[in-house]
Amino acid sequence: MSEKFVVGYDGSVTARRALDFALSRAKAQGGTILLVHVLEWSPYSFLTPQELEERHKRRREEMDRAKHHILEPVITEISDQGVEVTSELRYGKTADVICEIATDQKATQIIIGRDGHSALSARVFGSVASALVQIAPVPCTIVP
């Protein structure tokens, strides 16, 4: 059975390291890559009336930016290396969304970079990596 690696990718340096790690595995074991980019969002946050009015417009802009500047360049790059790749762009809580997609798409592994916050801020705000360790439905690799 072919491996399916879910990679959390936000264009950062650590995410790039996670992607490189996933790429080498995919090439070695023969697998596919599913890039997941999550735009952090809570339906319970507070917005000003002005922000409410512009929300739909901003959402479109945010999704465009993510698609064209973050996902598309690496998708081309990965395909060029001969590895099969798909992508998902979603709004929500990063860790939750990654797990949901991993379950739905029957992924075999989740690979993410460490988000590199200090221990204190991670303790206060939580980090994606530590959340995933707790809730991941499949084996999860955290690339330093």
Binding site: L39, W41, P43, Y44, S45, F46, L47, T48, P49, L52, R55, H56, R59, E62, M63, R90, Y91, G92
Partner: peptide, 13 residues
């Protein structure tokens, strides 16, 4: 529709 204005947000504002 995540990322759009939710009922909660409209109510809160």
């Amino acid at each position: 529709d995540a990322g759009e204005v939710s009922h909660f947000q409209a109510l809160a504002t």
